[in-house]
């Protein structure tokens, strides 16, 4: 078996390239501390390798939505995504929403502030990313659309009601 493993290793690409918040990222694949291991999740890489700790990990098992990021515009769970499989992808995290030039918050972020759409705030980045994916796809969602888009996001404080208001207020034709 050992030879088989060795043989297979040659198939492994030793670099993975993708973009995070518009910035190209090139990471070596390997087992040294600065490298990305094959078993690293995108959540781990974002937080531990790239220092983007705005993406939160709650269940680390695909059930709660806290670690939601955008991959090519779609909401995905970064805890269930292998970094080595992100080759060529475009990732957006909570750190990528505010205007990089002016620092101006995304309207969705501003609306979350205006509606106090959080309590402990731990689930908030994931909520905002799920809502962001929805609004990019459907700028004028109904309340039912918002609930559906956020249905995979856990919040234990019950910020849901204020979040719904915040998202609806941001949506075109919202309040």
């Amino acid at each position: 078996m050992a030879t088989a493993i060795k043989k297979k290793k040659s198939l492994v690409k030793n670099l993975v390239r993708f973009s995070v918040n518009g910035t190209a990222v090139e990471l070596e694949i390997g087992t040294l501390p600065h490298q990305v291991e094959t078993a690293h999740t995108l959540a781990h890489t974002l937080r531990e390798t790239l220092g983007l700790v705005g993406t939160k990990v709650t269940c680390d098992n695909g059930a709660c939505g806290s670690c939601t990021v955008l991959m090519d515009g779609k909401a995905v769970l970064s805890c269930m995504t292998l970094t080595v499989e992100c080759q060529g992808r475009s990732i957006t995290t909570i750190e990528g929403l505010a205007d990089p030039e002016t620092g101006r918050l995304d309207p969705l972020q501003q609306s979350f502030i205006d509606h106090t759409a959080f309590q402990c705030g731990f689930c908030t980045p994931g909520m905002i990313m799920s809502a962001k994916a929805l609004l990019a796809d459907n700028p004028s969602p109904t309340e039912a659309d918002v609930k559906e888009a956020l249905s995979g996001n856990f919040c234990r404080c019950i910020s849901h009601y204020q979040v719904l208001r915040a998202v609806m207020a941001t949506a075109q034709g919202g309040e």
Partner: peptide, 23 residues
């Protein structure tokens, strides 16, 4: 009166420092 939470910007930008975020 409703007033903005002092930590509101940090919460919505993901910069609030929870335990696992401190380096």
């Amino acid at each position: 009166k409703p007033t903005r939470r002092k930590d509101a910007v940090e919460v919505v930008t993901g910069t609030t420092q929870y335990l696992d975020d401190i380096r």
